[in-house]
Design a protein around this nucleic acid. Structure first.
Lengths: 336, 336
DNA sequence: TTGAAAGCGCTAACAC
DNA sequence: GTGTTAGCGCTTTCAA
């Protein structure tokens, strides 16, 4: 059976509030009693019911994390950063996987609040839930979800800059007929990456052919299918900017099957720098996101907002942008 | 502010227990009142405090999941199976990442119980925590943690059979001088895989050279380093059984650097069948674990034990073994 | 220093 | 059908 402070009190023939005081290092108990209580608690295998404690304190030391997919190593690493950082402050994490489903995301946003999380971190996959997030009763940090009049803070890699780095690199290599394989159209990350990419072309007074902007999903199949379709329709394409590494992996798969050599016959650059991008068999040029830092910074920001949640007037939504970094590998190279 | 049933009751000038009855579809309220309550609750944005509810019911509809690493896609897929299945029964998941650290695992085991989880799923990384798990106040399901006199149920792939499939396949291909790259020595999974592998050799009256049993970690670096070391010391080695795909990836990395062709110059077989094993650039022969099913079955077993947790005497620890499957790809081939 | 009592938000047993 | 009350395990205020 679970042992409670009442059990301890009964055994020691004292009042249970003394037990509470002793166990929580609060003043108002003699050293003698405290010692005895602590000892007995240990002997009886007492574990405080933090849920009940939370009912009183109105906090649960728990945050909700809602992400679309944990198999994509990008989110795996971000989540690791989140959990590790949260643990440092004794917070635990409810992990929710929306599977890119709007309704499921909505259900989760409600569910974690019912479970009285102290705050949440959300990588939202659709704008429809924005108002739900804005009306949340606890602080919210968005991952890549900044919009013009955001009501909550957001953290992301500087996607415009990341897109720019990708575009600039392709141009520097001598590629001129680039394509973009985007994630879903409503993904702000993809929009920013596209924007930065095209900026790089404009800056050099080069033209980006909009018919080579291809919209898909953030998965391997999408990369494979888009590559097939694009190269059949536009065989003149000399390079592709995949909006994430997983899409790029799909592209490489198609190229491999067709015997087209990335880096030689065509340039391919991804985004994220997931670990397998660096495998010698892959050697994908990409734009690195500081994944662990994203998680860490989101948690720190969130905990800070939780701490100051009472004086709401003092709180303005922040937008934090982390630096992307170009990682050059074998799938791009100087064109003669 | 958060709205409670008392707020609703006050507004409607009725007793708060009527509100509770109405909201929970319990008998004892007029349809009229019920309608009114439900309507008002919605208007006021009421969200039940499931924590408080749990204090009464003594359940939290939450399970704790403790795994060593979420970036390894193996655990990513298992965790996805866990969360999806748990959600079907309205359970949420505390995700904890032990990072292969015994102490951290111990802390987590205590922490989730303090948070009053209804049960937990643990992939334990060390035997020292066995007693802690056995004395848990809630049902526990182990992932790959069966020992002779287990006190809790355990689910895993049939690792002996998996190891056997790997060994048999290498033999069938004509490899005779195999090596094993194992995970940590205390990993029961690795022990079973080794055992099955060697069984296959014995069965054919072939000898496995024990000096080619190499112990490392379950990561890329380990695969790389062991490959380097082994092939320098035992250049006659003709094949390697990596105890997971990530180790195998490290092996392939080393071979690539040395210009040694897997499947041609040397056979390599992994374990797990993570997604990237199937990439055309990798084409790793491996033994597939039913990852999503592992997660699903563990949750179903756990929920079942939670339901019958009261009549303890009726409960025997089960051991469930799922079937592995050989996936032949390019890194092994028939030797002439 | 200790005990008694109220209350966190909710459910459930009992009385009316 | 509705209100009252106790209690889940805990913290905290107020008396003693």
């Amino acid at each position: 059976m679970k042992v409670t402070i009442k059990d301890i009190a009964q055994k020691l023939n004292i009042n249970f509030s003394s037990v509470s005081r002793a166990l929580n290092n609060k003043p108002g108990v003699s050293d003698e009693t405290r010692r005895l209580v602590v000892k007995t608690a240990k002997e009886m295998g007492y574990r405080p019911n933090v849920i009940a404690r939370g009912l009183v304190s109105r906090t649960t030391k728990t945050i909700g994390v809602i992400i679309p997919d944990i198999i994509n190593p990008l989110f795996g690493e971000i989540t690791t950063g989140i959990i590790e950082t949260a643990n440092l402050s004794d917070y635990d994490v409810f992990l929710c996987i929306s599977n890119w489903d709007c309704d499921k995301e909505k259900d989760y946003i409600n569910a974690v609040q019912q479970k009285q999380v102290d705050g949440m971190i959300v990588k939202s996959v659709c704008n429809e839930n924005a108002s739900l997030l804005e009306s949340a009763v606890v602080p919210v940090i968005g991952l890549e979800s900044w919009t013009a009049n955001n009501k909550f803070s957001s953290v992301s890699t500087d996607n415009i800059k990341g897109g720019y780095l990708a575009g600039k690199h392709l141009i520097d290599c001598g590629y001129r007929k680039a394509a973009i394989f985007s994630g879903p159209e409503n993904s702000s990350a993809s929009q920013f990456r596209r924007q930065g990419f095209i900026n790089a072309f404009r800056e050099q007074e080069l033209h980006f052919d909009d018919t080579k902007f291809c919209v898909g999903e953030y998965d391997i199949e999408s990369g494979y299918n888009l590559a097939k379709q694009l190269l059949e329709e536009h065989p003149d394409t000399d390079s592709i900017f995949a909006n994430n590494d997983v899409i790029a992996l799909g592209i490489l798969q198609y190229l491999e099957e067709k015997g087209i050599k990335p880096g030689k016959d065509i340039g391919v650059i991804g985004f994220d720098n997931i670990r397998m991008a660096g495998l010698p068999q892959i050697q994908l040029t990409t734009v690195k996101q500081p994944k662990h830092s994203l998680g860490r910074i989101m948690v720190n920001l969130l905990l800070d907002e939780i701490k100051n949640h009472s004086d709401k007037n003092q709180h303005y939504p922040q937008r934090i942008l982390l630096e992307p970094e170009l990682i050059v590998r074998g799938t791009t190279s100087k064109q003669s």
